[in-house]
Nucleic acid binder design. Structure first.
Lengths: 313, 313
DNA sequence: TAAAAATACTCCATAGGTATTTTAT
DNA sequence: ATAAAATACCTATGGAGTATTTTTA
């Protein structure tokens, strides 16, 4: 029993003639005669009563075509499903992102992605950065969005953007008077570590790239903050800095979303490499990336644009 | 896409290993690898992500097995249906019978048939004998039960029984005194045409075998009834004869079913060939007779027994 | 007797096999 | 280092072909 056999039987039943059916099936009559006989033999029943012309279905034949029709139905459905996936009209991807990042990433990316690939559904897995890489290995997610570099060297990444990380001071901070600070976007004035010698630094958790890279810089510069405060959330750090508790090192992405009344004064940390952190799409080395995942990557890259400037200095 | 392919994919999905699946499928690993690759190529999608061991289904693979499962489901159903028909656990036959005959035939035959072949359903097509033969040609029925011989020579028949046809007189008829007539079953006294010279004959319709054979006999004997009355139904003819309207020529089968209070006196018509009419199962020459029809034939023949005596004298 | 189906045989495409290399843990 | 999958190449089964006979309306 093969799909071909079913199609042959259905066509003969439809035409009530082996010769005519053979024509429609683009095979010869003897070949079709043999096929029908072979099918009947293998099933142990006659499907057609040849003692009449035009030939007629037996009871077994009627039952056969009823069930066979269902089979071809599902076979067609199967092919359609696969074709839709091949053409990216249907698919599903799962991606991980930190709770902090999702707020800025998805509103920027998903509308364009859904517009271009309406059939592809996206599952979002939100967790702390530390857990995302693990989720890749368990297969819970196809990839994740993270600040590079990745910790696990079984992983690799595609760079999608660089975002500046800035020192934020309270609007009332005395240091502001020393600089012509811009409080919003675009070019920020530079500030040096020396100037921040007496400040309380508001740190993120130790496993965040933002903190890792900042403290590595401090070590290289033999700089020790006067005091330290540790919080989980970058937005909390920002808010504390704006209220004058200390200084924080935050991504520029949070500024546009922040109510202007609650913004601080922003500075680029002088001579600091990590003032530009790299955002990447992270996945397993040698991972199979479905067409849908690659489609998502391409949409993300188009939206973020080719990262400008040299990053590896 | 063949059923084999589906089974291969399902087994690999189940085992999460091509090698293990190949073992279970009794083929070699390279052969199965090739098959899976061929299937994926033909569908244009990857079903398995080989970048991990044990390998894992892609989204397309999940969709595939969901639908493929349905297909195999219906394929199994199809094979079961055909097997049941081959084993006579399921089938359907349609048979024709005259309205008169059904009353005596089915109560005798169907209980035993249903007992032996509970899966075979029987459709009954009741019509006048004249229309039954036609129904065979239109395909409305597989065969019919009729008094032989058949009229159409495209048909043939299997003899199942002979039934005596008897002259019936009213219990009050003067002729009874000349014979030691038994009013019930078993041996009946003979009566000659001469004795019936002055009787009114109650005929059935001209196309009934009972009448055809009786009137042929009359012609051969140069006998002409004094008067004729024509009715459609043999039981009506019988009832009229019993009530003294005339004499009728009726099958012995009706006697046991008849209330003894309404029986007549029964005689064998002397020297008359048609006093034994042949009942047969009638079907097209060269007709395909399904196993179920043949099963029905065998049950009928067993119940009626091999017809006794010589019929062709 | 003419059209359809069955039979006899020949051929080749492809599923499956063996041997080996590549890949992943 | 080892177990699994992929690749290369070979073999043989069975579906489709042509030619012919048999059957049925």
């Amino acid at each position: 029993m093969e799909f071909r056999d079913i199609q042959y039987v259905l066509k003969v039943a439809e035409e009530r003639s082996i010769s005519n059916a053979a024509q429609k099936l683009f095979i010869t009559q003897p070949s079709l005669s043999q096929s029908i006989a072979r099918i009947e033999d293998s099933l142990g029943v006659r499907l057609f009563d040849r003692s009449k012309k035009p030939l007629v279905l037996t009871f077994a034949g009627q039952q056969f075509i009823d069930t066979a029709y269902q089979i071809l139905n599902y076979e067609n459905q199967l092919h359609k499903q696969m074709k839709d996936i091949a053409n990216l009209k249907s698919e599903h991807i799962t991606l991980g992102v930190s709770q902090f990042r999702g707020k800025y990433f998805f509103p920027k990316v998903l509308p364009a992605f859904y517009e271009k690939y309406p059939g592809i559904t996206v599952s979002i897995y939100e967790d702390h950065a530390s857990k995302l890489e693990n989720a890749i290995f368990t297969g819970d997610i196809d990839f994740c969005v993270e600040i590079l570099p990745v910790k696990n060297n079984e992983l690799t990444a595609t760079l999608i953007s660089e975002e500046r990380h800035l020192i934020v001071l309270a609007p009332t901070h005395p240091l502001n008077s020393k600089h012509s600070a811009a409080s919003s976007i675009a070019a920020y004035p530079a500030i040096s570590l020396n100037e921040l010698q007496d400040e309380t630094f508001i740190y993120l958790l130790p496993d965040s790239q933002s903190r890792i890279q900042l403290t590595n810089f401090f070590k290289k510069q033999n700089f020790t903050p006067k005091a330290i405060l540790e919080v989980k959330n970058m937005e909390t750090a920002h808010a504390l800095a704006v209220s004058g508790i200390g200084v924080a090192f935050v991504s520029e992405v949070i500024i546009p979303y922040c109510n202007p009344a609650f913004r601080g004064k922003y500075y680029i940390l002088e001579d600091c490499v990590p003032n530009q952190l790299k955002l990447g799409l992270v996945y397993r080395k040698n991972a199979y990336l479905s067409k849908a995942v690659l489609a998502f990557f391409s949409v993300v890259q188009k939206i973020f644009g080719i990262p400008s400037g040299t990053l590896e200095k």
